[in-house]
Amino acid sequence: MEILIEMFSYSFMVRALLVGVFLAISASLVGVSLVLRRNSMIGDGLSHVSFGAFALATVLGLAPLSFALPVVILVSFFILRLNENSKIHGDSAIALLSAGSLALGTFVISIVKGVNVDMNSYLFGSILSVSQADFICSILLSVFVVLIYVFSYSRIFAITFDESFAASIGIKTGFYNALFSILCSLVVVIGMRLVGALLISSFIIFPTLSSMQVFKSFKAVVVSSVLVSVFAFVLGLILSYLLSTPTGATIVLVHLVIFILFKMVGCFR
């Protein structure tokens, strides 16, 4: 307990906690639809594209966020179109984009000498050193995602469950898909600065995947995903402080343990 008090006496720790909780909420909500529509890899692909865009922005001397965000949104629209067009497989296109962006990012960073870029923080994030701007961004983002979820909850369910039926009763699936791509891009770009390109996708995928092992109604999966996501983040943050381990990796390992536990509970039910 004393250690906890000591831990949160540091203002950077409090800020990391709040930012992470907000990010955990928005990532898990976006994740529910991504996982259930079998589009989990989109989150992963976008995080790598985001890495490439950030690297390019740094090298070109542009503002990272305002450069990466439009790029990632554009790419997400592109991936969405690929999914609609059954001729090209979405998953191979995502693999291509991921590898390409990672390579491009690494390439431009290495050829431009004199630019000091911390590759490690791009890959694994730097949640303990978030700025005031990141803090505000993550709060606005999660408020935005939660509001959209609350007000279009039943339509999101209808589209996620069965898109062609939803379209047949006049739900504007094109609009919601586009909105969804934007939300997903926002979560990935902002999340990537905090927890890194490699970990943001587990923030999106793990909570839903774990919840699905135990819960069988959509509402229960949504609520459980948010709770699991926040719990895993807080526990991971505390553990990493106690054990002096890297924050991002610790959080993902907590998620993995939760997944295994939920899987076991699911088997016994």
Binding site: S154, F161, F215
Partner: peptide, 26 residues
């Protein structure tokens, strides 16, 4: 409209009420 059953994920977590209610969204 009732799409082909094969187009729907059999393991999708949803209660019967949630699914049937979505039909009223028009």
């Amino acid at each position: 409209y009732m799409p082909q059953e094969s187009k729907i994920d059999k393991h999708f977590p949803a209660s019967v009420e949630e699914i049937v209610l979505s039909g009223t969204l028009n």
